[in-house]
Nucleic acid binder design. Structure first.
Lengths: 193, 193
DNA sequence: TTGACAACAGAACAAACGTTCTTTATATTG
DNA sequence: CAATATAAAGAACGTTTGTTCTGTTGTCAA
């Protein structure tokens, strides 16, 4: 049982690199053991624990749970340091956390720094749910005069306006069409190594 | 050439359902043909077109391009807006983008606003790769006097210091132990609906 | 000290797999 | 109409795969 989580880790790392679950022979290498039959026993237990499953052809494939990451709720404090409990327990799948409706969700890379004060930087990836309406205060991807732009939706004298979150940029007061492409529901940033 | 895109479609559909590329025999079914050698010829062409590739073990795996969808909205750009990159694939697109080594990656919810100027807000989820060393300039999760904290690592007079990204917070100059828990490699934010 | 169990190793084997080579049918093109 | 390319079928074959069954080793409790 305890060793199985180590085997799972190795399998996850292998999968992250190669995007498949290899043959038993290869898994002997990955796991650092010499017996194919034992590899099978391990995989069977991982399947019982619902980390992997088999296709009708008998090939092993990962389940959703395979991609879950340990989540240390409120362990880290970015403000004043505070005593902390150990990390354990909860697991999260990043995609499930951000995406509710895959067919309506699209990823858009943010260009420019017009939303820096909202914590949205150049190069961040916005998770956008495509829909035609939004509420005041939502951060929306709008199509203004045939251009996509990411701004906060607001209302001024009965007309919709788009507020940047950066004083260096002007408020956009669309004359003519203000078409909503979608609403910002998530944000992803990757730091380069 | 023209038929290959049909075969690619079928392969994409199969992959979406089973998350792997099956044997040549199975692909005969999927493609609706009867010849394994022709399957191989097709896959070889798809590999030349960079939709799939092979692991060192000879197994076929999809490339990034395999998941890319033709996006109808062509590149609209001007001013300060955005570029659109639509993606297919229900799960683990974002995960794959952020996580290189699953076994060393953990998620931590950020508390406080000491890093707001770095675009890190209260409630954001930090994607942290656990390791003991970091470079100057990295944003790290450090253990200072038994407390976790998220700060930028810097050096001052030969000693490591932790800089917040908010002038309202003081620079931390650890006397005694400065232990690195991990390095920030990604950030995820979810906007409430 | 013995017995039981968990954690592996190893061998044996049929079925499946990928590869290569040869052949055939259908279009295309000049 | 002939030459040629494309799209596939099919057979042959050595290798790999998953599976099952039988051993081996270490540990720990009775």
């Amino acid at each position: 049982m305890s060793k199985d989580s180590e085997y799972l880790n190795r399998l996850q790392d292998y999968y992250a690199e190669w995007k498949n679950i290899p043959s038993y022979a290869k898994l002997c290498e990955v796991f650092g053991i010499a017996s194919k039959s034992w590899v099978k026993a391990i995989l069977t237990r991982l399947a019982d624990a619902d980390f992997i499953e088999r296709t009708p052809d008998g090939r092993w494939i990962p389940t959703r749970q395979f991609f879950s990451r340990p989540h240390a709720e409120s362990t880290v404090q970015a403000g004043m340091p505070v005593s902390v409990t150990a990390t354990q327990g909860e697991y999260f799948v990043i995609d499930e956390m951000l995406v509710d409706t895959p067919s309506k969700t699209t990823l858009i890379t943010v260009k420019g720094d017009s939303m820096v004060d909202a914590g949205i930087q150049d190069g961040d990836v916005a998770v956008v749910e495509k829909r035609l309406t939004a509420n005041i205060g939502d951060i929306v991807v709008a199509i203004v005069d045939n251009d996509f732009t990411l701004k906060t939706l607001d209302k001024e004298n009965g007309a919709f306006i788009l507020r940047p979150a950066n004083p260096a940029y002007p408020v956009i007061r669309p004359q003519g069409t203000l078409e909503i492409f979608g609403v910002l529901i998530g944000l992803v940033r990757k730091y380069k190594r």
